[in-house]
Every structure is written in structure tokens, then in C-alpha cells.
């Protein structure tokens, strides 16, 4: 498989910031190491990053050279919100396209909101909403980015809400794109993915006959607009937390 990330240096309102460059960040010796991507393709205001630069453990950010230097102040020990260029409505889109060689391709809106970088917690994602029992293979790619340069293990669980049973437990790692294979028997309306310590974005991937589909599920609070929405979601997550414990 091949991956390509396309990052615009403009907002969807048309505002262009030519000083914006793409930097690659990875953990090295318990600090954040910055790589300036001087040779990345820039074509009509789009930076294109190909598979040779993409790894499960690295991330990319859009910033000016002055902004990226701010990480030095904390001795590269913590990620910082370098700018608000990508805080737009409608949401900013950095496109990750995954292709099967000689086959299909699928895109996913791959930016990771900074407010999630500073948070711990748990995520809840239904398995059958996007995965497909008819597919040859179903995988959840679970991406976590945490502000500290650590790779700490935590748990991801497949939980049946009706029977209140844990069906599967896997270890996942912070600051990494984790790959969780999903067996067909778990793709059922009452089965959910739940994590116990850190949040992240679950990207659901199905493949069949050289075709591929990739999409993320919504965070649960997006289903509710009432004022008590965080309380309602918190109560549901508490139910899952009690099951896994």
C-alpha cells in the first residue's frame, strides 16, 4: 500500500500563507525531534508528502520557521499549539490518501486537532458503523498524538454493550499509528471499541477485491446538541469503563 498526505498552505476561505512550511516531528531520545522537509513537493499551494517520509511514529505540522522554533523554549519536551491557521469552519482538510498498488484508493481527513494533543481520556467508536463483514479484511488504524514525547502502552477493548463483556483486548501505544485487526465475529451492532487511558482517532478501513474504504467515526458528543451532552456521553463512557474494569 502507498500513502500520500496533501497539506494545503491556504485556508478554505482562500487565505494563503506562503511562509507556512511542513515539518516532520518524531520522538528521539525522549524529546521531539524536528526535521525540516526542504525537498517536499509544493505544487499550486499543496505540499505533497509521499510514503518515503511517512512512518507510524512520526507526525507533520504546518508552521512558519519562527513558530517551529518555539518548541526549543521547552527543550523540545512538549508539543505546543504553534498557530491557529488550521482552526477554521468548515474544518481544515489535510488529506491522507491510501492506495492499494494497482488497485483502489481512499481518502481521509487526517488533521489531528491540537485540543486532543493535550487531553487524556477514552474514546468510544462503534465497530459496525463503518466496517464491513463482506470485506476481505477490516482494520482500525488508531492514531494517538500526545504532547509529551513518550510511547506509553494503554488498552483498547472490543466491548459488547448488551452482554457487558470484553471480547478482545489489545495493547496500543501513544504517539503512534496503531493497527488493530478486526475479525468478522466482532462486527456487530452492539460491539464498540473503547480505550482506557488516552484518546485518539479511530480510522476504519475495509478492503475487498483491491478496493479500499477509509473513514473515521464521529466522537459521541457530536450526536448531541443539548447542553448536557458531555454529561450524557460521560455516563455512557462510565458504563464501558465499568465493563472493562
Amino acid at each position: 500500500m502507498d500513502s500520500t498526505i496533501t497539506i494545503p498552505r491556504f485556508q478554505n476561505s482562500g487565505l494563503l500563507k506562503k511562509e507556512n512550511k511542513v515539518f516532520q516531528l518524531e520522538i528521539s531520545n525522549q524529546t521531539w525531534k524536528i526535521n525540516s522537509l526542504t525537498n517536499v513537493d509544493l505544487d499550486r499551494d499543496f505540499y505533497t508528502i509521499d510514503s518515503s517520509l511517512i512512518d507510524n511514529g512520526n507526525i507533520f505540522c504546518l508552521a512558519t520557521e519562527d513558530e517551529i522554533l518555539r518548541l526549543e523554549k521547552d527543550n523540545y519536551l512538549k508539543l505546543l499549539n504553534l498557530n491557529n491557521f488550521t482552526d477554521t469552519s468548515p474544518a481544515f482538510r489535510a488529506n491522507l490518501q491510501v492506495s492499494i498498488k494497482g488497485g483502489g484508493f481512499s481518502s481521509y481527513q487526517s488533521e489531528y486537532p491540537f485540543r486532543m494533543v493535550t487531553s487524556k481520556g477514552s474514546i468510544l467508536s462503534p465497530l459496525s458503523s463503518l466496517l464491513n463483514k463482506e470485506a476481505d479484511e477490516n482494520i482500525i488504524f488508531f492514531k494517538n498524538i500526545y504532547e509529551l514525547p513518550i510511547q506509553e502502552e494503554f488498552g483498547a477493548f472490543f466491548v459488547n454493550l448488551k452482554t457487558k463483556k470484553v471480547l478482545k483486548k489489545v495493547k496500543v501505544v501513544t504517539n503512534f499509528l496503531n493497527e488493530i485487526r478486526v475479525e468478522n465475529e466482532f462486527i456487530s451492532p452492539e460491539v464498540f471499541l473503547f480505550t482506557d487511558k488516552y484518546i485518539g482517532i479511530p480510522i476504519h478501513c475495509s478492503m475487498k477485491n483491491n478496493h479500499i474504504s477509509l473513514e473515521h467515526t464521529h466522537p459521541p458528543h457530536e450526536y448531541i446538541l443539548s447542553q448536557d451532552r458531555f454529561k450524557i456521553v460521560s455516563m455512557l463512557k462510565k458504563e464501558f469503563s465499568e465493563i472493562i474494569n
Binding site: 483502489g104 481512499s106 458503523s129 463503518l130 464491513n132 463482506e134 470485506a135 475495509s206 478492503m207 475487498k208 477485491n209 478496493h211 479500499i212 474504504s213 473513514e215 473515521h216 467515526t217 464521529h218 457530536e222 450526536y223 448531541i224 446538541l225 443539548s226 447542553q227 448536557d228
Partner: peptide, 26 residues
């Protein structure tokens, strides 16, 4: 019985072209 209950189903829609695996968007 609640004072306030406003919900929205953002859902997922998959498109299958010529019998292919559906490509989903939310």
C-alpha cells in the same frame, strides 16, 4: 421527560460503484 433533548445523526453513507466495496463518507 427531559428538559432539553436535541440530537443529530451525522451517519455514514457508502457508495458502491459497479458492485465494488462501498466508499464511505460521513
Amino acid at each position: 421527560s427531559k428538559d432539553d433533548l436535541v440530537i443529530t445523526n451525522q451517519c455514514y453513507v457508502g457508495f458502491s460503484y459497479k458492485g465494488s466495496l462501498s466508499s464511505f463518507a460521513h
